[in-house]
Structure formats: C-alpha cells, structure tokens
Nucleic acid binder design. Structure first.
Length: 738
DNA sequence: CAGCCCACATTTTTT
DNA sequence: ATGTGGGCTG
C-alpha cells in the first residue's frame, strides 16, 4: 500500500484516497492524470474497500483503456477480471450483448461503423427515391446521429419545418432498416443501452447494486447522451448511488465539433453536488517557460473552471519563433533546427512536428524526404478500415447474419462473379415483395438450383454460385475455430486469388494474412471468442493507424492527434490567421476559444523545446495564400519568445524586434482576414502590398510575393506570369498596379 | 462491366 | 494539388 501512494503530491493523494463520494478532478496537462485514475482503482481494491467486480471505468479510446488496464495489472498482484474497463461504446456493446433480448436485438447483432452507416443511409435514400443532390447522405447521417445523441427517436422528433419533416422521415426509414437487418450504429449503442436501463428496472437495480465506483477519463469530451447514460447508470436518485469520479480538463476540450459538451463538467458539479473540485496543477512534463506561455494564452478564454499550471523544474529555453517568407522556407527552418537537436543528442522519435490540418504535412514530408530524415505520419487509413479488410469482414458478417444486406451488397459481386445491376434489381424486387432480406430473396430464387449442383458438377455462375458459396461457408464454420474460418473464407471467396492477380495487390494480401493473425490474438485474449464477438471488436476498434513503424523517426501529426502525448521538442508550424485559428472556426459558436484550447494542447506537448513558425505565403488548394501571423502569437508574452527569420531576410540589418513589429503593425482587422496581403508600404505615393497584381513594361504582369528594404532602398519580389520570379528596386523599376 | 473523365471539395476524429 | 465519387463510354 505504501509503495502505491509513494511520491504523490497532496492533491493527487487526496484524489486517490477520497472516500466513497463523487468527485470532479480538474487535471491539467502533464499533471499525472492517468496515474491518479489507475492508482485510485488499485487503491480501492488493495485497501479492501471493493473488488474489481464493483468498478466500472470509462475511457474514450481503446488505447487509453488498454493502457490503464496494463498499469493497474502492474500495480496489483491479483486478477482484475470482472473490472469493467473500456470505452463508452465498448461497455454499451457488452451490456447489450449480455441483455440482447431485453434490448430487442439479435444475439449476433452487428455494429456499423461510420462508413457502413453512410452506405446504409444511401441505400435507404435510394429506396425512397430521394435525390441525393437535394439531401446529401452526409447531412442525413449528421441529422440522425445528432438526434440520437439528443436521445431522440425518429417518432419523437419535433417537426416544425419541411426540412425537419423530411429528415425525420429518413431517420424513421433508416431505423426500420437497421432493426430489420439486425445492425446498430455507434450512437445507437449508447442510446439502446440508455433506453434499456431506463425502461428495465430490474436491470437498472442490478447495475446500481453492482457498480459502487464509476470512474471517467477525459470527462470534458463526453457528449450529452454519454452523460445521461452515466447519470442513469450511477443511479443518482437511488440509495445505492455509485461514487462517480470524473477526471477532465476544460482547457483541453477540443472535440466540440463531434458533440463533446464541456457544459457537462459544470452540470456534473451541480448534479452530483460536488462541494470542492480537486485541481491537479503541478505539471511534471514541461519547463516553466513553456507553461508560462500556455497559461498566458489560455487566459484569453472566458468561462474557464480556472487552473494555472506550474512546475518545480527550471525555466528552460525560450520559445523559438520563426517568421518564414513561405512554407518551403518554414520547412527548411524546421529541418535546420531538427539537425541541431539531433547534434545535441535528442532522439528523432522525441521530436514532434505538429500542424492544424493534415494538408500541411505535405510540404514538411517533402523537405524531410530530401533531407533524408526518417519520419512517421499519424492518421490516415486504419487496419479495419482498409478496403480488402472490409470486404473480408463483409463475408464474415454475412456468414454470421444472413439478413445483413449491407454486407451482402458489398461482396455479392466482389470478386466479380457476373452479378450486375440487373441481377441485383431482381433480388431487390423479390426482397421487397417478400418483405425479407436480399439473402432470403437469393435463396428463394436460386437456393434450390445451388443446392442441386454438387461438388462434382461444373460450377454455377452468378447468384446461384454465390448462394452455394455462402451456404457452404456457413456450414463449415460451425465446427471451425475463428482463424480457420477466416482462412477458408479468404480462399473460397476468391479474395486471395483476386489480390494475387492484381498489380498493387501485395500489400492487400499481406493485410488479409494479418487479419488471420488478428483473429488468432483475439481468440487468445477475448472472453468471448465467437465470430460475432470478433466482428464487434473489428467495428469498435479500428486498429493501428499505420503498419510498419519506424523505430527512430520524427513524429508528424495534427494537434488533435497529439493530445495526451508528450515530446522532448515540439515544432508547431502554420501559425497563421485562417489556418490556426482556422477560418472555419469563425462561423462556429465559441470557435475561436476552441482553437485557442487546441493551441494550448499543442504548447503543452513540449517538455523542453517549443518552436513556433508561420509562413507569409503558403500554397493551399493549389493557390498561393498571403498570410497574417496568428493572433495566438500575440497572446504569448514577448519575454518568453526569441524571434528569428531566415538568413536572407535578416541581412538587411533590421533587428529581429523590428521585423516582428513591422509585421504586427500591419496586422489586418478581422473583417479583412484572408483578403489582403501581409504588409503594405508607401513608395512615391503608391501603396504596394504582398499579393498585389502589378505590371512591368518588360516583364509583363505578375504578383508581388515578397519585399525587403536595404539601406533605405525598397525591393519587391514579383512572380511574373511569363518571366518568372524577379527582384526589382521600387525606385527604378516602373511598376504599375493592375 | 470496367475503365476513364470530370466535377468537386478540402479542419479537426473516436467509436 | 490532389484525391474521391459519380456518371458515361467502349
């Protein structure tokens, strides 16, 4: 016990050893949040207060859940089976499978991921002969998910206008389709589980009695429905109300765009009658200068719960800020500094290159490639989202559940077996007439024929062949272990053969083989090793973002993806108005504050060094954009920063301070953002600015892309349409504005 | 039925 | 600039 509680600060200790009562822990970045959560669980068990069976712990990602389990196992010598630890969706899935009948679901109900859901919606819209131009499927998806997260069924939607009436009708049709096919989407897991508990008193009491402690990680990311679910599960009004221990940081709430509701923290404080918020403000990650910058920045937000990070460590180096003429120069600066860090002995894997949007990685990657620096980009396609894996899973889903039309449609003609639109239409007509699934229709039309053709006869084509294939797979899999089922399916379906022939198929073949391995490890780890359980696992956990990681490479990712991580050094690039803060955030409620929190997250990733940079011009969507430095740079105290500019720009003798000042003096008001250039200046009564179109009698027309001043002589760089890039002295060159 | 071409968008993302 | 999805042609 003593070792468990060693080296904790007073606030951490208070949180961990809190008696049986609900608590709100405001945990700053790098304040040992995960340690507090895991240690509290270990403490509760080890002190004999409760058994693992009495605890439920919720996280947002499978990765976080896995890590917490590992850490708890390391602290406790006992078996912690029985502890419910997982994501909201994972836990709801578990509950729904345990009570599938009460929840009105098939025992083998399948889970649609977002792309499956979209496909389903498209199908429903098509069956209603809706014009997709008028009602984009994505918008319908958004509507349905929002309704579900508000706890609303289609019939409960309040209809006041025509648009809502239409949407509610689509929702209803979609709901019916899902029920018929035995599938549930992500928000449905939550809503079903909520409704089940709400309506079924026996079950509700069972879980109230069981879970004496509920712990929630990243509470600021919960949406309305998740919070309602928590309240219901905790049994707020019952005598046996669980102690709900939530940990979060309102300053790191960066997922409002997907429904996260920071208001839940305030509501929680009220609903659970929290008398005193526990604040973890001591930071064990970053040096003081970095924290000072983060604190100063975030103070510009309103309505915070309030928190100031501090550290016992030293000040550390100032933030390096770089003003680059363009995105290539910005990348060059980053590479120079990376090499310097490398020379200091910093491992490349301890250096992160962060950016606001994925598109920015391109230029960085290009430069890193030229500089022969190894790197790894996070994001992109994940294992279970790959096309070939989705196809394989569709076969498995159809084996597990014949009514899964989504799955059938995906693979009935993949690999191609001569079933076209015509054949499909026939099936769809039969299905509609019979009110059954496509599979039932196929069986009805071709079942007899398919069954007649024995192994020895020549293979049937088309639907008959498909029916025979799936039927035989279904028979085989009854007796086989999961990896064998998959292995057989991959060969018999022709998937292996198909990718074997395809030119670019090698990677896909490798992934298919990896699927067998995934099944192998699944049956070793999971309590339920059935096919349905594996399919649920595949939907709920999309797997690693990238295969084949580089051991010592730079880490490239968006700021969002960096949340929760830390690095020795962090480069944050693209600090320009319109990019960070992103221009789209201007149209969103509290959009700017969310961007600022995102900036706060970015800053607090760094342990020792933080580099901030912006480019005056940048290629975006195939067009050059002229940028103003991000306002966030202005919100960081000057005393914490050291400015630099690329060498060719500083030789004009301007002090770094002046360079900065010159840029900021010309900062353009919000209303003009994105329309005009970075700076302007007076020459012989003419106003020149970057981005301005000009004409020259010899070179023709072009655009001003840069300017500098030397000994009182101003020069501008013009990109001429015909003659290319030229530096011109304003005094001599006769330029005329166009 | 597959391949090609054009229109189109393009912040952030987990389950 | 670059990828994706839908519609049309061989």
């Amino acid at each position: 016990m003593s070792s468990l509680l060693a080296d904790l600060n007073p606030q951490q200790l208070a949180a961990i050893t809190l008696p049986h009562q609900s608590a709100l822990v405001l945990a700053g970045a790098g304040s040992g949040k995960t340690r507090v959560l895991t240690t509290r669980i270990a403490y509760l068990i080890q002190s004999g207060q409760v058994s693992p069976y009495d605890i439920l712990a919720v996280t947002f990602t499978n990765k976080a859940a896995k890590e917490m389990l590992t850490r708890i196992s390391a602290m406790l010598p006992i078996n912690i089976r029985g502890l419910w630890m997982g994501t909201f969706h994972g836990l709801c899935n578990r509950m729904l499978r345990a009570h599938h009948q009460a929840a009105g679901l098939l025992p083998a109900f399948q889970i649609l991921d977002s792309s499956d859901q979209l496909a389903m919606i498209k199908r429903v819209l098509k069956s209603l002969t809706v014009d997709e131009k008028e009602f984009p499927p994505r918008q319908v998806q958004w509507f349905i998910n929002n309704a579900k997260e508000a706890g609303l069924r289609a019939k409960n939607i309040e209809v006041n206008d025509n648009m809502t009436r239409q949407m509610a009708a689509f929702y209803l049709a979609y709901e019916q389709r899902c029920n018929k096919e035995g599938v549930v989407d992500f928000p449905e897991l939550l809503l079903r589980s909520y409704e089940l508990l709400n309506r079924n008193e026996t079950l509700r009491i069972h879980y109230h009695d069981r879970f004496k402690h509920i712990l929630v990680d990243e509470f600021q990311d919960t949406n309305r429905l998740q919070y309602k679910w928590l309240k219901l599960l905790a049994g707020m009004d019952s005598e046996t109300c669980a102690a709900v221990f939530v940990v979060g940081d309102d300053d790191q709430s960066i997922y409002a765009f997907r429904g996260a509701n920071t208001g839940n923290m305030v509501e929680f404080e009220h609903d659970f009658k929290i008398s005193k918020i526990i604040k973890l403000e001591q930071n064990y990650r970053s040096q003081a200068t970095i924290l000072d910058a983060a604190n100063a920045l975030i103070q510009n937000n309103s309505g915070r719960l309030g928190k100031n990070l501090w550290t016992a460590e030293g000040k550390g180096a100032p933030l390096r800020v770089h003003n680059a003429p363009n995105d290539f120069d910005e990348a060059a600066f980053i590479i120079d500094e990376i090499k310097a860090l490398q020379a200091e002995g910093v491992a490349l894997s301890q250096i992160a290159l962060l950016y606001r949007s994925n598109a920015q990685s391109r230029v960085l990657e290009h430069s890193l490639f030229s500089a022969a620096l190894p790197y790894r980009v996070y994001g992109g396609m994940r294992f279970f989202e790959r096309q070939e894996i989705k196809h394989a899973l569709a076969y498995l889903r159809l084996i597990a559940n014949p009514d899964d039309d989504n799955a059938l449609l995906r693979i009935i003609n993949f690999p191609a077996r001569g079933i076209g639109a015509r054949g499909l239409e026939q099936l769809q007509t039969i299905a509609r007439e019979q009110g059954g699934s496509l599979w039932a229709a196929a069986l009805h039309k071709y079942g007899g024929e398919a069954m007649l053709s024995g192994e020895s006869e020549k293979p049937k084509k088309g639907v008959a062949e498909f029916v025979r294939l799936i039927t035989s797979m279904r028979q085989d899999c009854a007796a086989l272990p999961l990896p064998q089922i998959i292995k057989q399916m991959l060969t018999q379906s022709g998937l292996m053969g198909h990718y074997h022939i395809e030119r670019e198929g090698a990677d896909r073949l490798e992934n298919l083989n990896e699927l067998i391995n995934a099944a192998l490890s699944f049956i070793h780890e999971a309590e339920d090793d059935s096919l349905s359980a594996f399919l649920a696992h595949a939907s709920l956990e999309a797997g690693e973002h990238q295969t084949g990681s580089i051991q010592d490479g730079l880490q490239l990712m968006t700021v969002h993806a960096a949340k929760g991580l830390e690095f020795h050094s962090v480069f944050l690039s693209g600090l320009e108005e319109g990019l960070f803060p992103h221009e789209n955030s201007r149209n969103e409620v509290n959009g700017l504050e969310e961007e600022r929190r995102l900036m706060y997250v970015a800053i607090t990733r760094a342990r020792h060094r933080l580099y901030l940079s912006f480019a005056q011009t940048r290629m975006l969507h195939g067009q050059t954009r002229y940028n103003v430095p991000s306002r966030f740079l202005n919100e960081i105290p000057e005393s914490l920063m050291r400015w630099s500019q690329s060498v060719q720009k500083t030789k004009d003798g301007y002090s770094e301070f002046n360079i900065k000042k010159r840029l900021f003096d010309l900062t353009i008001p919000n209303s003009e953002l994105g329309k005009t250039g970075v700076m302007s200046q007076q020459t012989q009564g003419v106003q020149w600015r970057i981005g301005q179109a000009v004409s020259h009698n010899k070179f023709g027309t072009g655009k001003i892309v840069n300017y500098e001043r030397q000994d009182g002589n101003a020069r501008v760089q013009v990109n001429f349409d015909r003659s290319g890039m030229k530096w011109l002295l304003l005094e001599y060159a006769k330029l005329t504005p166009v």
